[in-house]
Simulated scan of single mutants.
Amino acid sequence: MKRLHRPDLFAWSCFDESRNIDFCSVAWVRSGGNVLIDPLPMSEHDRAHLESLGGATLIVVTNSDHVRGAQSLAQQFRATLYGPRAERDSFPLPCTHWLGEGDEPAPGLRVLEMQGSKTPGELALVLEKTTLVTGDLIRGHVGGTLNLLPDAKLADRTRAVASVKRIVNEYPQIETVLVGDGWPVFHDGAKALAAIAG
């Protein structure tokens, strides 16, 4: 796994040829049990690295299109699966817990529900007020900038933009945005979010 901007954050990815972007996953290493967000299947190297860091106790899937390798990794590490509450009745894998606005699956990791994306109640996660981890709605197709899902895939563009504006207003101290699809933004995250919410 690749080390990110903090010593307790790691990522791994795979390149999607149809979109010409990386799909990305995040691991947060913490004393109370490590958290994986939208985990892709892992190479033997990355799996061994994660095992050396203590494995995983909790896996958060932000939306039904990001199930990826979550179920197999949950079984391997005996981790608890968390999914978006708004998709509970149709989610493609069984979860132990369902997350919605304001929940904290681990101390310091706060859940936001994004509206207007391609799936209802898509989750975004704010880590200790300065790092945002996103699913599908907020992406990074070009290095150094962020973008929204294409309009054709949005359920409601107005609500989607309002969700991003709300993040900027409530968390102006966000410095880093780790996207599920594309390039992360490591500096001036709130500014990059504001640019797509304008």
Rank of each mutant, 00 (worst) to 15 (best):
P92T: 10
E51C: 06
V60H: 02
A190L: 10
F91L: 00
K118T: 12
R159G: 06
V133G: 06
P150R: 09
I21W: 05
L154P: 08
L132A: 05
S43E: 10
T80P: 11
F91K: 00
C24M: 14
F10A: 06
R6F: 04
K2S: 10
E101P: 00
E175Y: 05
G121Q: 06
C14A: 13
M42R: 04
V29M: 02
L146Y: 03
T158K: 14
S31I: 04
L137R: 03
R47D: 13
T145L: 01
G102D: 01
L146N: 05
N147W: 03
P105T: 07
A79K: 09
A194V: 05
G69C: 11
Q173V: 07
T62V: 10
M114P: 13
A86Q: 13
I196H: 02
Y171E: 02
Y82K: 07
N63V: 00
Q76F: 14
G83T: 09
A195K: 11
N169M: 07
L178C: 01
G32P: 04
G69E: 14
H187I: 11
G182R: 00
N169P: 03
M114E: 14
Q173L: 05
N20V: 03
L36K: 01
I59G: 14
V142Q: 12
L93I: 15
Q76L: 13
N147V: 12
L109W: 03
Y82S: 11
V126A: 06
G180Q: 03
S52K: 06
G135E: 00
E44M: 10
E17M: 06
L178S: 01
L137Y: 03
A192H: 15
P41W: 08
H66V: 03
A192T: 13
K118A: 14
R85G: 06
V126I: 14
L193V: 09
K165C: 08
N20E: 09
T134G: 10
S117R: 05
